[in-house]
Design a protein around this nucleic acid. Sequence first.
DNA 1: CCTTTACTTCAAGTCGACTTGAAGTTACAT
DNA 2: ATGTAACTTCAAGTCGACTTGAAGTAAAGG
Lengths: 151, 151
Amino acid sequence: MTTHDPGAMLSIGDFAARAGVTTSALRYYESLDLIRSVRTAGNQRRYRRAELRRVAFIRAAQTVGLSLDEIKAALDRLPERRVPDRADWQRLSADWRRRIEDRIARLRDLQEDLDGCIGCGCLSIDRCAIYNREDALGEEGAGPRLGFQTP
Amino acid sequence: MTTHDPGAMLSIGDFAARAGVTTSALRYYESLDLIRSVRTAGNQRRYRRAELRRVAFIRAAQTVGLSLDEIKAALDRLPERRVPDRADWQRLSADWRRRIEDRIARLRDLQEDLDGCIGCGCLSIDRCAIYNREDALGEEGAGPRLGFQTP
DNA sequence: CCTTTACTTCAAGTCGACTTGAAGTTACAT
DNA sequence: ATGTAACTTCAAGTCGACTTGAAGTAAAGG
């Protein structure tokens, strides 16, 4: 901690500690315009407490499987001038809840199929429900194919 | 298709087509000992049809968020000599179902929290349930932090 | 026999989300 | 005033799961 002035803006170290992320992650987020900071006379970053909410949103959104690009798109819909209020966040989180529902549904499907397909040791792979679930993979660029699809 | 002999082993191209993955992915899986092939006199790979089930398992497991390392661990518990039977696969899938349940539970928690926390626009980030959900992140090596946790 | 298509290996490239390191600067506590 | 912890930028490294490309070999159809 640098100072104890209650109303002061936070240094990157303090902010990172409160946000539960590393300072390098914060700089990275800022480079992507996900969060903002102001600078001191000596060029150091200072954060408003309201930015904590943005970071919280980013981390939570990530655990639901959103990419930083998608998160940026969501955050960009927040008002520039005023501090986002309850209604703003609610608009965002509605979108989000649909995603969670979606993901849960996918997992449920997979689990149901487990009972009837791979679990049964069947050989009819071409007709296997699990197997034919994700068909639109392969053939388009580099990088991990699976691991987490953000549909 | 190379030949129409019904009982023949499959070339990598045919196998890939049936499995719905690319040939390069198959070679990669083989390099990790996830699947096996035999070689022709001319050093080309030939696959038994039973291997299709392994690939189906791999792909399905990936959609649930397992890494290839974890999948290998699971597959290594299958018998070496005989072709895996219904009981073998069922033993595996039981383990698997627990993982799916786990993942669903996590998402449900997150969704519940959404109703009370970020959605409300609260400022008490330090007490926020979503925010404090994933604390054990940061500080251990490179690579993506989030995106999908395989706990 | 010849041509095409499919295969072989191996090294290097790719993507997202950061981290790490180097070289230098600022701010706070004594 | 000074030591040191915290900060600055920028380039390069990392991880998993593949893909891409080059250079060469094999197999099937005509």
